[in-house]
Simulated assay, not measured.
Amino acid sequence: MQESSQFPVQVQQPVQARPTDSWLQKFAVKHSIIISDATGQTFVPVTSFTHNPDWLSTMWLATRKDYLDQDIFHVDETGLFFRLTPEKTMTCLGEHCFGGKLAGERVTVVLGTNLTGSEKRHLLVVGKCSDPQLLASIEGWPLKYASNNKSWMTNEIFESELRDWDSELQLKNRRILLLVGDCSAHPRVSNLKNIRLVYLPYHVASVRQPMGRGIFRSFKTQYRRLLILQLIDCFEKNAATSITLIDALRMLYKAWLRVPVEMIKNCFLQTGLMKSGSEGSVFEEFEDDIPLSLWLSNHSFTQFDAWKETIDWYVEADSELQTSEEPEEKDMKIEEPAAEG
């Protein structure tokens, strides 16, 4: 299980961040459940958002007309409890984590890829730890690490990442279109030379964003597998099973590499963002992307049999972690998405 930990991370210093959405409500929507509280008050899940039904066929086609699929990228964030083990699954379901002690147990991971899945952007990981020893030990790794008190994406981190990316593209004489969600952590960034930045309106993003259609789940599945393998290795060697942030960064890097390219492409096909002539099946399944319970069974890993009933929940137990400040209702865009550059 030991591998070389020498790999490039550019480090940004701590910046402050601040407060969403209910895991329980989303779970209810997904499974058509009506929820009541202790007083008997009923909460009926909201099943749809008001959005422009012609966005894909009008605004989007006009926006993307000068770009090939491989030159259109999407970036989004997901929260992750990097030390979470299967037996703790039920204690973390629906956790938002607005800071405090739990902020040191989680990270925000920024994933970026083009529509074809052929080009994955290096990971950007935001954690709480700003220990100089940690920063020195990860120097040179193929990912970036930033920190703040709540382990969230912030305006400063977002803008810094985009300006670095824009500089890289200028050196390559390449222009891209970049889709991001319209939220408080994604500020308007002016004077980008080679990135056309397009902000998906809040309501459209809720329906159309591809990361939630399987990319986040696949990434977390790969990470949980690597974590389980490390735990098993520790059990067999009768060694301590603590997972450090260094361990987590190494596994996050490997997990992103293992997300199937064709699965990413199919997620984008489902959104309608790709050109209609793009090939692929939106119903295709991938051998390396099977449920965690089946993966454990296939490899005869019996150490986690006690939690087999909840092991598949384990993958996305942290799916409701806060990754940035909650946008105000007045900031949620419903009209044509703004574009920069």
Rank of each mutant, 00 (worst) to 15 (best):
residue 91 T to K: 13
residue 67 Y to K: 02
residue 85 T to C: 03
residue 100 G to Q: 06
residue 156 E to A: 09
residue 73 F to R: 04
residue 72 I to E: 04
residue 127 G to R: 01
residue 133 Q to K: 12
residue 109 V to A: 07
residue 71 D to K: 07
residue 81 F to P: 03
residue 76 D to H: 04
residue 62 A to G: 07
residue 178 L to R: 07
residue 102 L to E: 09
residue 152 W to F: 12
residue 176 I to H: 03
residue 139 E to H: 12
residue 180 V to R: 06
residue 96 H to Y: 09
residue 150 K to D: 08
residue 118 S to E: 14
residue 76 D to A: 11
residue 165 W to L: 14
residue 174 R to G: 02
residue 185 A to C: 13
residue 63 T to S: 11
residue 186 H to W: 05
residue 175 R to Q: 15
residue 167 S to C: 10
residue 132 P to K: 04
residue 101 K to Q: 10
residue 93 L to Q: 08
residue 62 A to K: 13
residue 140 G to K: 14
residue 169 L to F: 06
residue 131 D to E: 11
residue 69 D to E: 14
residue 93 L to D: 02
residue 66 D to L: 13
residue 162 L to R: 00
residue 168 E to D: 15
residue 174 R to V: 04
residue 129 C to E: 10
residue 126 V to R: 02
residue 137 S to Y: 01
residue 79 G to T: 05
residue 143 L to Q: 10
residue 174 R to K: 14
residue 144 K to C: 12
residue 97 C to S: 13
residue 116 T to N: 08
residue 98 F to I: 03
residue 73 F to C: 08
residue 106 R to L: 12
residue 90 M to F: 11
residue 177 L to S: 07
residue 176 I to Y: 09
residue 144 K to E: 14
residue 114 N to M: 04
residue 193 K to E: 12
residue 147 S to W: 01
residue 154 T to Y: 05
residue 57 S to N: 14
residue 66 D to Q: 13
residue 183 C to V: 15
residue 190 S to K: 13
residue 156 E to C: 00
residue 162 L to P: 01
residue 77 E to V: 04
residue 156 E to H: 04
residue 126 V to H: 03
residue 111 L to V: 07
residue 96 H to S: 13
residue 169 L to A: 10
residue 92 C to K: 15
residue 112 G to M: 02
residue 122 H to P: 14
residue 137 S to I: 02
residue 125 V to R: 04
residue 179 L to Q: 11
residue 112 G to Y: 04
residue 164 D to N: 07
residue 169 L to M: 09
residue 188 R to I: 11
residue 96 H to C: 11
residue 86 P to D: 05
residue 135 L to M: 09
residue 105 E to G: 03
residue 63 T to K: 13
residue 159 E to L: 00
residue 90 M to V: 12
residue 123 L to K: 03
residue 80 L to P: 09
residue 191 N to A: 11
residue 134 L to F: 14
residue 96 H to P: 05
residue 186 H to F: 08
residue 108 T to W: 07
residue 73 F to L: 09
residue 185 A to F: 00
residue 160 S to K: 08
residue 85 T to N: 05
residue 57 S to R: 11
residue 167 S to V: 06
residue 135 L to Y: 11
residue 142 P to S: 10
residue 94 G to M: 10
residue 165 W to F: 15
residue 104 G to S: 12
residue 171 L to N: 14
residue 100 G to V: 06
residue 124 L to M: 10
residue 157 I to G: 01
residue 164 D to Y: 02
residue 120 K to G: 05
residue 178 L to T: 03
residue 62 A to Q: 14
residue 181 G to K: 08
residue 86 P to W: 06
residue 191 N to F: 09
residue 126 V to N: 06
residue 122 H to M: 05
residue 121 R to N: 07
residue 178 L to G: 03
residue 157 I to R: 00
residue 122 H to F: 07
residue 123 L to T: 05
residue 141 W to V: 10
residue 120 K to V: 02
residue 95 E to D: 09
residue 190 S to W: 07
residue 139 E to A: 13
residue 57 S to G: 08
residue 76 D to E: 10
residue 145 Y to W: 12
residue 67 Y to R: 04
residue 100 G to I: 05
residue 174 R to I: 06
residue 156 E to W: 01
residue 190 S to L: 14
residue 192 L to N: 07
residue 160 S to D: 11
residue 135 L to E: 09
residue 113 T to S: 15
residue 136 A to I: 01
residue 194 N to M: 15
